[in-house]
Nucleic acid binder design. Sequence first.
DNA 1: TTCTTTAATCGTAATATTGCAATGAACTTA
DNA 2: TAAGTTCATTGCAATATTACGATTAAAGAA
Lengths: 109, 109
Amino acid sequence: MGITKTEIFTEQQNEIATFAKAFGHPARVAILQHLFKINACICGDLVEEIGLAQPTISQHLKELKNLGLIKGSIEGTSICYCIATENWIKMKKVMMQFLDQDISNESCC
Amino acid sequence: MGITKTEIFTEQQNEIATFAKAFGHPARVAILQHLFKINACICGDLVEEIGLAQPTISQHLKELKNLGLIKGSIEGTSICYCIATENWIKMKKVMMQFLDQDISNESCC
DNA sequence: TTCTTTAATCGTAATATTGCAATGAACTTA
DNA sequence: TAAGTTCATTGCAATATTACGATTAAAGAA
């Protein structure tokens, strides 16, 4: 009833879904792309860059941080975020494996 | 309030998010993996295989079909689903490009 | 200390998603 | 035609997500 039945799926399936969910919102996609583009770390101008309110961006950042895809460190009065390289690579491996499944050349329908 | 502001993002960002959202539920991941595994097309035994009620599976199939990632054809009394190869490859390209962004070797935090 | 800046958190409203029982539609078989 | 099979649709309840105003917390500057 409205709650995802995580128990009936494999760990791998849940992991894929969890990562995918993180990318399932354009704001989080935009945040990650910006962090990649700006080689140096970026703090609060994500708010300006993206155009959502500060609490909203903060919330999206929190989700990405909880998943371990980004990390933030205090830098004076502001906070500096960047891609958590190691975990990004791990995640990429999991997702690539899912996306890159063999497609049989004989589809029946 | 509560509704994603699609307008403020690029088409590419929205596309990535839409695809990712499709993979953001373990049931849909499981469905796709099963369709890949069973080379031949599979119809309603997805219900048995996965362990969710038939309407629930049907709903997930509909989402995947709307996105164009799978297709179904009537086969007598049952319906045969399989991966929509061309669109899958297109989607893969979009997602890979996003996942495979260059990671600068000098992360600052 | 007081003011300012920066970002997290709280609280709440709007909307979306998930899941299923019940029902309906289309086809097959008896 | 009647009964059975297979899957889609409807309707609804439970929960999750998105967004933001208001507030709080922490650090630097006056």
